[in-house]
Design a protein around this nucleic acid. Sequence first.
RNA 1: GGCCCCGUAGCUCAAUUGGACAGAGCAUCAGCCUUCUAAGCUGAGGGUUGCGCGUUCGAUUCGCGCCGGGGUCACCA
Length: 543
Amino acid sequence: MKEYLRERISAGLQSLGLAETVTPTFERPHSAGHGDLTTNVAMIAAKAARTNPRKLARQLLDRIELDSTLVDKVEIAGPGFINFRFTGKFYREQLKQILTKKNFYGHSNIGKPLKTQVEFVSANPTGPLTVGHGRGAVYGDTVARLLEWTNHDVTREYYFNNAGRQMRILGDSVRLRYLELLGDAIVFPDDYYQGEYIKEIAQRLVDHRADSLRNEAAEGIFKQQAEQEIFDDIKKTLKRLDIVHDVFYNENSLYETGKVKEVIEEFKQRGLAYDQDGAVWLKTSVLGGEKDKVIVKGTGEPTYRLPDIAYHREKLRRGFELVIDVLGADHVATYPDVLAGLKALGFDPAKIKVLIHQFVTIVQNGEVVKMSTRKANFITLDELIDEVGADVARYFFLMRGAGSHLNFDLGLAKEQSEQNPVYYLQYAHARIASIIRNAESQGIDVNVPADLSLLAAEEELGLIKMLVNFPDMVESCAASFEPHRLAEYLHDVAGSFHKFYHVHKVLTDDRALAVARCALCLATKTVIANGFAILGITAPEKM
RNA sequence: GGCCCCGUAGCUCAAUUGGACAGAGCAUCAGCCUUCUAAGCUGAGGGUUGCGCGUUCGAUUCGCGCCGGGGUCACCA
């Protein structure tokens, strides 16, 4: 429809000699009184046309012809908006599309499919996932789902590092707890992992291996055991939220295959790296950065920058045309160096989109809880899911924009879980399912073609119009990586449905009308279910 | 101090990416179940969109300057 109007309006502008000044755009007015679609071309072009917007709009409309079976009414309103209202026929056709396409309604083939990677979570296996990780996990997964619905080929990837200082400390933390359980007197350093889970891992080692590990090194069995158990837990937690990664990429492999070394060599060859004070420096200052940065320390160990650049180079070498990194706000400062480094190596950084989500502030009993894995001061994602369930947890993280610093009051989340917005949506779905069951038990065949022209009431048309927006909604949410707008939209759909439900009885004695309303119910159910599929929320048949 | 996010109803957050009267939920108050699920619906109150300039037909949205909160600026990841 937009395409049709765009073509018509463009033709009109052409004949007025204004085709160069403006390309028409259309949007849905928020007020129903302003029609179904609106354009502001007349206001934008008015200056160049040396006339006032309303006059220009009039001239424009006089020069074009519109298909009256699609467009019911055109109005010039306000400062110069042109409002279009579509015919019932047009909407009935759209409604049929929903009923025909079912699970696929909202899938779009627009744009060329890109081989896409979404990297998210990527927490090192030093402890359980926290509520803080939850936001990135759910956000990343939902962005991946949106991209799948817009026909991209998506790989979900988890990047981790099982070497390095933190993992060494993790292994030694387990070793000390193990010795403690054996009755040895130990000194447990403050900067070691304080969590209970460390003791549990140590306990299992005692159970299975008794005191046979007394002289083992921290980096051996202790670290391995910890890594494995913690990783298993992380995967289990993610699975509860219906998040499954396709690839777990180990940072270490970049060293083993010589990729890291290659990158250093190449930087040096290009004159972008140099030795100084025993370290290797990258000339980030000539790549747009403020100052040069160290990529290999005096100890011979690289800083995070180097493997990150090597990793992203591999991403692009693996053929990904779109690479999405989902990062927490604490990583904002890290990616410019990585992108600059890639550009210097001859890769196109525009293929990489970095999505930053702000932190979740945890509030408990009116106090802000500072989370730290090492200090074991955290609320785990598992605890949250135990309390409120996976659907509420997912919805909670998705209902706000990624850029908002959201406050999470755990007590409130528990209290409100019975009255959580997600139930409002699920209730609409369950309600429809129930109506359809009743219809079938009354012998109404809900699948026969209905006379949709019977749906003429305000609440019916309002609902239909809402439903028809779904594909556009999916597309624009995917394009802007903003799942929260889909959540808002579904909330509105549910609202429209509940209103319709209260005003009109679906299963009336008028059989033809009942069938038509059932069709509307089924279409609504489809849109809600498809929206839930994108958000990763279950669509209950009963509540 | 430099850079990045944020500041909207009592609280938590939206606002179609510059559009028409700034909207939801929670909380408060008043109504609606002998009708398909009341986890629902209807109505009321609640706002100088942190403050001040500017850009233009039009600003919550863009620019500049303040104020306040968070993050980040390592040979830590």
